[in-house]
Structure formats: structure tokens, C-alpha cells
Simulated scan of single mutants.
Amino acid sequence: MDWDDLRVFLAVARAESLSGAGRSLKCDAATVGRRVGRLEEGLSTKLFLKSPQGYTLTDPGIRLLPHAEAMEQAMGLAEEEISGQAGKLTGQLRIGAPDGIANYLLPQICKRIAEENPELDLQIVALPRVFNLSKREADMAITVSRPTAGRLTVQKLADYQLHLAAHHSYLAAHPEIRSRADLKDHRIVGYISDMIFDKGLDYQSETGAERVALASNSVSVQMQMLRAGAGLGIVHDFALPFAPGVVTVLTEEVSLCRTFWLLRHADDRRSERLTRVAEMLGQGLRAEVARLEALAAQGLTISE
């Protein structure tokens, strides 16, 4: 069985379309279709069913998938060894993450990793959803809830704190906030409830707010609302140094702790390259969270 044909098979299985597979393989859809046909002819079986929704695996295709993934992993490790790149950070690596960590933490951390590893290309994909590592949407992903299912390697990265906050201009123009009960008289900024993709992002129940008047699925948009003096919202302490004028309120009554988890596909656990990047991400993230939370505690901001 030809590895190149299996590589095409994996791309179609993950993209669920010939065009999507072609983009990842950097070739046209017609070529992908011919390669799939050649593989199916060689195996004397159909591996995909075509429908208006795309290409889905048949039962034989489902049975072939784990073997193709195992071969992909073996080929990757073999390339590292043969090329002498084992332990060296080179090539491209994609990290999927919620936009809070992607905006306020990963840029600094990835900058340091890139400076130490000039031949490594890092990509940060910030999307408000859970990444599918089985479809290779990313090499690793960061979440705020520990998954309980799937073939994953899960690593704790760091704990972080969140508090209720508002811009001083909003606080000056609205009734004083002395207890959680006073929040009913204030406009709340937060997530769109039916677009919360991770239970760790559901803050409303913990604040006791009955209504979110201004909502977005993006942490960055919520922060901009707060900076504009639009209302009160839950913010990451590590984001406060980037938001001059936004200050915490009710810190004793409303205090949340969450955890960042790093996810990798279980088949990648033998990759020294990915393991080293994971270690660097963990060390960098813990240090950066501690640095920024210390600045926030002192009421300091980051100068441009």
C-alpha cells in the first residue's frame, strides 16, 4: 500500500471534501480524486461515500483510518530520525486556542520560542470552538475544560484567575457596587449563552447575573466593550494590564479560577519535537500568567 495514497486518504477523511484535501496537500481536487480512486481500486473497495454534505467514510474506510494514522505517525518519526532533526524544532506547528489566551498570552510566549528556534514556524489559530485534533485542524490545542473522551494526551498548563471588572468611567457614572445584589442595577457584558463552546467559559451562573445586555462570543470584543465604559464583565486578570482604566470590583465576592489544558493527539506522544514544544508552552504560559497577574494586582498596565 503506497504511503502517498494513504496520505491523500487521510486528507480527504479529515477535510470531508476533495477541495479541502487539495488545499492541505497543495494540489487540485481532480488529482485528489484520481488518487482516492487508485487506492480504492487497489483495495477493491469503496472508502468514501459522496453526498451533498461531502465525503464520508464507508465501513472499510473507518477500519483503514487508524492504520493510516499509525503509518503517518511512524513516517513522521522516521523523517525526524533520518534527517537528524530529532530534538530540533523546525518546520511548521499550529496551535489552536480560545481567543483570550491567543490574544493576551500566546503572542509573547511564541515570540520567545521563535527567537530560540529560528527554523520553527508557529501558527496560532484563535477560534471560539473546540478543535478537532483527529482531523489535524491543529497539532495541539488549548482548552479551559479537561476533556473526558477522545484519543488525547492531556497536560495541565496553568491555573489563572478572573474577576468582575469595569472601566472607571462606567463606575463613576453608575450606582455604587457594594455587594453582588447591586449587580441587578448594572449592565452586564459577557458571552452569548448559546455560543459558549466550553463549559469553563460559562461565567453568568457564577456571577448571579440574570441578563447579559451586551454579549459577544469573543473575549477581545467583550474587553473592548468594557474599555468603552459599556458595563461590567468577567475578565481574565492576565488581560487587565492590556486594558488601562479597567479595574476589578467585588474581588472577594466574585473570584473565579480556571485552568488551561494542552491537548495533543494520542498518536503524537512519541514525537520529541511536539513534546519539547509542549514543555516550552507550559513553562512560558505559567511564567507569563504569573507576570501579568502580578501587574494586575498592582494596578499596573503594559506600556506600548
Rank of each mutant, 00 (worst) to 15 (best):
D4S: 14
V8E: 09
F9N: 02
L10P: 05
A11M: 02
E16V: 01
E16A: 14
E16P: 00
S17W: 04
S17C: 07
G22W: 06
A29G: 06
E41M: 10
E41D: 14
L43W: 09
K46V: 02
T58H: 07
P60C: 10
P60N: 08
L65Y: 12
A68P: 08
M71H: 12
A74Q: 14
L77Q: 10
A78F: 11
E79V: 09
E80T: 03
E80R: 08
S83P: 04
S83Q: 11
G84C: 06
G84K: 04
G84P: 10
A86K: 15
K88E: 10
K88R: 15
G91H: 03
Q92P: 04
R94E: 06
G96C: 06
A97H: 04
A97E: 05
Y104W: 15
Y104Q: 02
L105A: 12
L105P: 06
K111I: 00
K111Y: 09
R112N: 08
E116V: 00
E116P: 00
N117C: 05
E119H: 11
E119I: 00
D121G: 04
L122V: 03
A126S: 15
A126Q: 09
R129C: 09
R129K: 15
S134T: 11
S134Y: 06
S134G: 15
K135Y: 13
A138R: 01
A138D: 03
A141Y: 07
V144E: 14
S145F: 01
A149F: 12
A149Y: 11
R151K: 14
D159T: 08
Y160F: 15
Q161G: 01
Q161M: 12
L162G: 06
H167M: 05
H167A: 11
L171A: 03
A173K: 13
A173F: 03
H174W: 00
R178D: 10
S179W: 00
S179T: 13
L183V: 01
L183H: 07
D185E: 14
R187M: 11
I188A: 11
V189A: 09
G190R: 04
G190W: 06
I192A: 11
I192V: 15
D198S: 13
D198Q: 11
D202K: 13
A209P: 01
E210Y: 06
E210R: 15
L214E: 09
L214A: 09
A215I: 01
A215Q: 13
A215M: 08
S216P: 06
N217T: 05
S218C: 07
V219P: 02
M223F: 10
Q224V: 00
L226N: 05
R227L: 12
A228G: 13
G233D: 04
V235D: 06
V235Q: 11
H236Q: 14
P241A: 07
A243F: 02
G245I: 03
V247G: 01
V249P: 07
V254A: 05
V254P: 01
C257A: 12
R258M: 07
T259N: 10
R264T: 07
H265R: 13
A266P: 00
D268P: 03
R270K: 13
R273S: 04
T275L: 12
R276G: 09
V277G: 02
M280K: 15
Q283F: 03
Q283L: 13
R286H: 08
E288S: 09
E288W: 03
V289G: 05
R291T: 03
E293H: 10
L295I: 01
T301S: 14
I302M: 14
S303N: 11
S303K: 13
